[in-house]
Structures are given as C-alpha cells and as structure tokens.
Write a protein that binds this DNA or RNA. Sequence first.
DNA 1: AGGTTATATAACGAATTTGTTATATGAAAG
DNA 2: CTTTCATATAACAAATTCGTTATATAACCT
Lengths: 105, 105
Amino acid sequence: MYAVEELSKVLKVLGDPTRLTMLKQMEAGEQCACSFVDCFDISQPAISRHLKMLRQAGLLLERRDKQWIHYRLNETSPFYPLVTDLLANLETVEPSCDCEPDCAM
Amino acid sequence: MYAVEELSKVLKVLGDPTRLTMLKQMEAGEQCACSFVDCFDISQPAISRHLKMLRQAGLLLERRDKQWIHYRLNETSPFYPLVTDLLANLETVEPSCDCEPDCAM
DNA sequence: AGGTTATATAACGAATTTGTTATATGAAAG
DNA sequence: CTTTCATATAACAAATTCGTTATATAACCT
C-alpha cells in the first residue's frame, strides 16, 4: 500500500517521456549512462539530471566500472512492481539517433 | 500497449497528491465537485482546474444534475485499468476538513 | 604530470505548474 | 427578474521543471 505523497512523487518522476524511455531501455538490463547520451537529442547534463531524478526517487541503482556508470532498475524499491508493470505495457521506442545497446565495456 | 507520449502525459496528471486523492475518492463512486471543495484546503477554482486536467486526460466523465456536477472514473479510458490498479494500491486518505461523502443531491 | 573520456554540478532562462483573487456562467429559488 | 449557489474562466505571482552552456570531478592512458 502506497501513501499518497510518496506515490504522487514517483508518478511525477515517471511522468516524463525521456525518463520513461530511459526506464524502458533498462527493462532489458543494465545501461551505461553514455548510451542514453547517444539515444536522446538532449545534452549530456540534461541526461545526467534525469538519471539523478530517477535515482533520487529510488528507482535506479548504479554500478561504477572504470570510467563508466551503469544504471539498472532497483528491484528492491517498493515501487519496482509498479514500474515493471508500467514498462510491460509500454511500447518500445525506436531511437532517433544511433543508440548502442550498451557502451564498449 | 501505451505509447510513451500518451503514458507519460497521463502519469504526469496522476503525479499530483490532490488529483490522486480525488481519484481515490471516486474509486468508491461518483463525487460531486462541491464535495472536493469541502475536502481540500485549496480554493474552489484550484479544485476546478484539477478536475479539468483529469477530464482532459480522459480519466473522468461528468454528469450534470441540476446545479451540481458529478464526476466519476471513465471506465472506457484506455488508462482505466492502470488507474484502478494504482488506486487499489493507494492508502485511503483521511480528509483534513469536513468532507461529506457527496453533496445534498 | 598532462590529455582524453565519462559523468556531475552550477548558473541561468524559458516554459509550465499551481496556487491566489476577481469575474463570468448556468441553474434554482424566491 | 433578481438573488443565490455551484462551477468555470481570466489574470496574475511564486515555485518548479527542463533545457542550455560552462565548469568541475573522476578515471584512464600516454
């Protein structure tokens, strides 16, 4: 059972096409932050801030490997079931620019 | 299957504690607009605008009866299953001010 | 050490959101 | 017909969002 304040905060974070698409891409597994930079037509700092919002909402976990940071869905979030359910009902988006499944490493 | 743009728009509308609480109250059935005015600590025009946003997202239907307007969840919305699922996992909120289940009529 | 790559933060502006008060509309009641 | 009640709209201010460019940090490579 979610409290109204918490749920509305998470839904607000989910209510953005860029962040929703990011999550959809992480549905398949870990994604390097650099791959998001390639996938979207917005600047690297904008990507970084979207990731931060998802992280602060507790929806993401990160793993540092060398200079790359890999993000993945946080399966221990109380909202993880909600997120996976949403993503399962979300069409896959074909990227506008060239978008590698993941970076070199 | 939802498209990213549509789903993110709906989630954005859902991502507000006032609107989420309004929907929760409509989970039980029709609600007169005036009952929302009693339930929340915001002005009548603010309530009216929240209802408009929910209506424009296709989540609500209205029924006019005399001078009152009754709102209910739109069961034919493609997002209705999503909404009911969310509401089922949302704690009921006890109202701050006096809040009738519905107005006189 | 110095250069390159990946990511984060700061500072800022335009657009959007969310509240307010004042006003308009629509229906009911005297 | 004028008043009253329920609801909607207009105009505006404060706060937030979301992008930008410039700069900082962190790790790797030579």
